[in-house]
């Protein structure tokens, strides 16, 4: 119980909410790294997944690579890149991208592959060209799965951006690293709670995005030919 009270006091301290070491600034850094990492990953993974899904080429390679990337221990990747490239934002982003690309790539690929053959047949049969089939049929139908992949990636990125503090950049991980260094348990817990909060907010954000981006005909259980 003492821990809870101390934690409360930690959050209640006005100094906690101002300056470069304050929660808003750290939160801002954390969101910035996460957003950057996620966007970079999406820029790489979505077009690649659309391509492999649409052409059916490289599907096996994609899945195998993604499997491999999934099994990689993130801190290993991060520390190795830091050793090679030095401390800074670039190695952090590399690690985040390595983490976020697989789920987005696999879900985009599977989302496009999963479009029913008869729908694709109808689209070509009506005279759509390849890119029209991709943009007017496959992409919109794959959006729900792509969003799920993005959400998985986002939650992992938010969690992993915490480690960024170990290689000398900011973010909520600073509280954890500094707390560990100073044997300040309260600070460490405060940082962890904030990370959890941000992760939950991210999940909620994607629930909202789903409402916004998924065509009503595709929502929950909506299926042609039922």
């Amino acid at each position: 119980m003492d821990i809870l009270i101390e934690l409360f006091a930690w959050f209640a301290d006005p100094a906690r909410w101002t300056g470069g070491g304050g929660v808003p600034a750290r939160m801002g850094e954390h969101v910035y790294y996460s957003l950057l990492g996620l966007l970079l990953s999406a820029v790489v993974a979505v077009p690649l997944g659309l391509f492999t899904g649409h052409t059916g080429r490289g599907g096996f390679l994609t899945t195998s690579l993604a499997n491999f990337a999934r099994a990689l221990p993130t801190i290993g990747v991060l520390f190795l890149i830091v050793l090679a490239a030095g401390i800074g934002l670039v190695p952090v982003l590399c690690a985040l991208v390595a983490l976020a690309v697989p789920p987005i790539l696999v879900n985009t690929h599977e989302g496009v592959r999963g479009v029913e053959p008869r729908l694709r047949d109808a689209a070509f049969g009506m005279g759509m060209r390849g890119h029209q089939v991709l943009l007017r049929l496959e992409l919109p139908v794959a959006v729900p799965l792509i969003l799920i992949g993005m959400r998985t990636a986002a939650v992992q990125v938010v969690a992993t951006a915490t480690i960024a503090a170990y290689v000398g950049v900011g973010g909520l991980g600073r509280y954890i690293v500094d707390g560990q260094a100073r044997q300040d348990l309260t600070m460490m817990l405060g940082g962890s709670v904030l990370v959890v909060l941000l992760a939950v907010l991210t999940t909620l954000l994607f629930a909202g995005l789903r409402r916004l981006l998924v065509a009503p005909g595709l929502r929950t259980g909506a299926v042609a030919g039922r």
Binding site: I3, V155, Q156, V158, A159, T160, T162, I163, I176, L185, M188, L189, G191, S192, V193, V195, V196, A199, V200, T202, T203
Partner: peptide
């Protein structure tokens, strides 16, 4: 289960520590 899923394990490790 879904709420738990959103909670990063890294943060949980630190929360468990005390």
């Amino acid at each position: 289960v879904n709420v738990l899923y959103a909670v990063p394990s890294i943060a949980l490790f630190f929360l468990m520590l005390p």
